[in-house]
């Protein structure tokens, strides 16, 4: 799911004068923050992330890779480890709650969790990792799975910052 998020960040749209970058931060209470400095969600992006069928249709219709439809499809992989996922882009934020009916596609308007100023980015995704075993894997593997070779095929991202917000 980390690679899906990174791939989505690489597919995003960035301002001409921006150096595309992403931040991944793990906090000891099981919150995982993923952010990037893209231009921000469009209406089509919100639709794509809320409705996997629609994004599949868009993908097939456009018949090309790197379109916004992929944002919705890859994004759903976060629910492998997260029950609740917040999205923030520009000045708006909402969450998905997997434990409710249609919760993975039904957005609820809500405040984004607080993170330090230096981690704030224009578009952010926050995962609440429920199981302690999943938290342990994420905490330990974060810097191990993200090797330089993982980024060979990225086209836009020039920097990925990994932060652990815990006692270590």
């Amino acid at each position: 799911f980390l690679f899906e998020l990174i791939q989505n960040a690489d597919d995003n749209t960035y301002a001409d004068d921006a150096q595309p970058e992403a931040t991944i931060a793990y906090r000891s209470d099981g919150l995982l923050l993923f952010g990037c400095n893209e231009q921000g969600f469009s209406k089509a992006n919100v639709s794509a992330i809320c409705d996997i069928n629609q994004s599949t249709k868009t993908l097939l219709k456009q018949g090309k890779k790197g379109c916004i439809g992929e944002k919705g499809i890859g994004f759903k992989s976060v629910f492998k480890i997260a029950d609740k996922v917040w999205i923030a882009s520009n000045n708006f934020s909402f969450y998905f709650d997997k434990t409710t009916p249609l919760g993975m596609v039904d957005p609820v308007w809500a405040k984004f969790p607080d993170f330090p100023e230096q981690l704030q980015m224009n578009t952010m995704i926050c995962l609440k990792i429920e199981k302690q075993e999943d938290r342990d894997v994420v905490r330990e593997q974060l810097t191990k799975v993200l090797e330089p070779s993982s980024f060979m095929f990225l086209r836009r991202l020039t920097k990925v910052r990994v932060v652990r917000l815990d006692d270590f």
């Binding site: 231009q39 969600f41 520009n90 000045n91 708006f92 909402f94 039904d106």
Partner: peptide, 20 residues
């Protein structure tokens, strides 16, 4: 880009389309 009001309205529409 999308404003807060536009996003709120769009999210309302999405929820309605899901029958929420």
């Amino acid at each position: 880009s999308l404003s807060v009001e536009e996003c709120q309205a769009h999210i309302r529409d999405i929820r309605h389309s899901h029958g929420a």
